[in-house]
Nucleic acid binder design. Sequence first.
DNA 1: AAAGATTGAAATTTCAATCTTT
DNA 2: AAAGATTGAAATTTCAATCTTT
Lengths: 191, 191
Amino acid sequence: MDDTQEPRWLDLDEQRTFMAFAYMLVQLPAAFDAFLQRTAGISLFEYQIIAALSVAPERTARLSRLAEFTASSLSRLSNGVTRLEERGWMRRTPDPDDGRYTLGVLTDAGWDKVLAASPGHLGEVRRLVLDPLTKVQQQQLHRISERIMRVVEPDKPPINDRLRDLPHLRGRPTHAEPQCLEQPVEATQDS
Amino acid sequence: MDDTQEPRWLDLDEQRTFMAFAYMLVQLPAAFDAFLQRTAGISLFEYQIIAALSVAPERTARLSRLAEFTASSLSRLSNGVTRLEERGWMRRTPDPDDGRYTLGVLTDAGWDKVLAASPGHLGEVRRLVLDPLTKVQQQQLHRISERIMRVVEPDKPPINDRLRDLPHLRGRPTHAEPQCLEQPVEATQDS
DNA sequence: AAAGATTGAAATTTCAATCTTT
DNA sequence: AAAGATTGAAATTTCAATCTTT
C-alpha cells in the first residue's frame, strides 16, 4: 500500500503486530472447532458447510463454491459432504444448468441441525470476538479483514457483498426461530 | 465487555463484521500454508514449529509448549516432530529439569531451513497483512488480537510478552543473516 | 495419581489419477 | 480439451489406550 521496495525483514512493531495476529489466527479457529465439537458434535469445517447452505438461495450451493468458501480442496469438500449426507443433513443433486457441477442441498434435518448449533456458536462468537472489542474496534476489524482479503483474493468482491446478492430466502420461514447466522436473512432484502 | 444479558442473535453490523473476519480467519492461513508448501516444501504447521524453536532459548522448547503454541494436540505435535526429525531439522532430548518433559531442539540444518524459508514467508506477511493496512490499522489489529486472546486464554499473558521474556539468544549469531522471525532477537534484550 | 509424551487404530485430508459433462 | 467432481492410496490427524517420570 505504501512502499514498493523490497524490505526483507519486519521492524519490531511489525513483528509484534504480526505475532499477536498470527497467534490469534491459529488459536481462535481451534477454540471454535473445539466448542462446536463439544456442544454440537460437529467440526468447524462441517458447520461452515451447512451454515453456508442455510443462507444460500434454495439452501443450495455448488460444491465448488462451498470448497472456495471453506478454503478446502474439492476432494476434502467432497468427503465432507459425503459425511454430512450420511448424517442426513444434506444431499447431492446434479446442477440442471450445467451437469459438470454438483449441487449440495441442505435437508430439513440439516436445517434443524444448523438451528440447533448456531445459538451456541454465535454465543462464542460474541464472547470471544465481539464483546471484547469496542464498537470502533469492531468496525476496524471489519475494514481490516476486507483490506486483507482484497489482496488475498484480488478478483473477488468482499464476502458480504457476495453473500448479500443472493436474491433468496424471502418468504421461507419454515421454522419459528429466526436464523441470523453469519448472514442476514430477511433484513438482506431491503438494505 | 459491555452487556451482560444473553443476546441470542447478532445484529446486522455484527453479522457482517464477523462474516468478514471469519472468512479471513479461514482463507488467510490457507494462503500462508499454500505459499510455504510451494516455496519451501513445508506446511505452515511445521514452519511454526521450527520458527518457534529458532527464537527460543537455546533453540529449544518443550513439546507441550510447542503444542500450545501451534494449537495442536500433543499427539499431532509428536507426529510432526518425528517428521521434522526425519528431515534432520530438529531432535528430541529429555528435559534434564523434569524427565516427564521432552525437549525439541532445532538442529543447524533446521536453523538453515528457517533462514531459507523465512524471507519468503515474511514477504507474504508483509504483502497480505501489513502493507494493505495503514499504520493505525496495524496498531488496531495488534490491540484487537490481544483483546480477543485475553478472553480465549484468560490466564495467559499476551503472546509477545511470553516470547520476550526469553532471556536468551544473546551472542549467538551462528549465521550471517539476521533472523527476525515473528520475534525480535537482539532487539529483545534492551526493550 | 498426575502430567507429559507416545503409539496403534480409525478417521480425515492430501495427492494423483480417473471419471463425467460441457 | 477444460472444468468440476470423485476415488484409491498415501500421509496426516484424532482418539483412546499405554508408557514414563515425577
